[in-house]
Simulated assay, not measured.
Amino acid sequence: MLGLTFTAFVLIGPSWWQLVTAAVVAVLLGQVMFLGHDAAHRQIFESGRWNDWSSLVIANLYAGMSYGWWQHKHSRHHAKPNQIGVDPDIATGALLFHTEDLTAPRTGLKGWLTQRQGWLFFPLLLLEGLNLHVSGVRTIFGRGPVKRRPVEIVFVTLRLGGYLALVFWLLPVGMAFAFLGVQLGLFGLYMGAVFAPNHKGMPLVPPDLRIDFLRRQVLMSRNVRGGRFVDLFMGGLNHQIEHHLFPS
């Protein structure tokens, strides 16, 4: 599918129909990331090494994101989902999931966003695709530990550099920016629409509460049922309770 989409992109050339291609790329890259997620959880091969390299190729080279950044963040989430101060998925940022981390009331733009964050949640997800790329680049070029930093740098540079070069070579500047905006916006919206329902709205665990593994993984997770289309759309992650109980 990626090969066919790439061929269509080249054959269509400088046309506003490329925005349709951008939407298709966004969905396909979402599906690619589900495969990267499976490999990172050791779900594809018996060999941990094969799974690691599959994740590097899929996440870094195909999707342009850092496997090392995602693994560190996602491992903390799986260890203690929805626990305040531990789970990075509910950390205070543009959105506010709890008030324990606040040192002062939110005012100005942050206060305005917080008061309307329910309405703004999905529009803000249009920026999540860009945020995922930026977070990965900051990690692999930062000072923190990254297991295979040189490989990640090479893969991400090839992917992002080659992708941008191709888009701006084939399309006029304005059309190229529109293509990237649609692709990144829909990709972020897609990822958020899949991952957010899995835990958002479920109970939050206080920082000092001790809870056993079964309750921690089951009570903080949500399954989403809807047939084969939902299974395909969400990459199987709609079975979040089972995924947290048996992540590999």
Rank of each mutant, 00 (worst) to 15 (best):
E242C: 04
G48Y: 04
L132H: 00
L61F: 06
S135N: 13
S221G: 13
D38H: 12
F187M: 10
R216M: 13
G174R: 04
K73R: 14
I12H: 01
L4V: 10
F233A: 14
A59E: 14
L61Y: 02
V27P: 01
G64C: 01
L160F: 04
K73P: 00
Q31H: 14
A26E: 00
Q31K: 15
N198T: 15
W53I: 01
A26D: 03
D231A: 07
W50K: 12
L186R: 00
F121R: 15
T99Y: 02
W169D: 10
L96I: 12
L214S: 08
D212F: 06
V224H: 11
I44Q: 02
V167R: 00
T103V: 05
G36I: 00
L237P: 05
P105V: 07
M234A: 12
S66V: 00
D38A: 08
H133M: 06
D231W: 01
P172D: 04
L158T: 13
T7W: 11
F177L: 14
Q117A: 01
I44M: 03
P203K: 09
A165V: 09
G118K: 03
A79S: 14
R225Q: 13
T157D: 13
L171P: 00
R149S: 08
L164M: 13
G188F: 00
F213E: 15
F195K: 14
M191E: 12
A176W: 01
L180V: 10
A165N: 09
G227F: 06
A26L: 04
A178Y: 02
R149G: 05
M191Y: 10
M220N: 15
R116C: 06
A196H: 13
S75H: 08
G36N: 02
H74I: 02
M33I: 12
Q183C: 06
R42D: 09
H199K: 09
G30R: 00
P14A: 11
W169K: 08
L102Q: 14
L96V: 14
P207N: 08
G235L: 04
F121V: 14
V156S: 06
A104E: 15
L160E: 11
F34A: 12
A104D: 10
G174C: 07
Y67N: 14
V151Y: 07
A94W: 09
A94I: 12
E46M: 10
R143Q: 14
A91K: 14
F229I: 15
L180M: 07
G227A: 03
E242F: 07
I84Q: 01
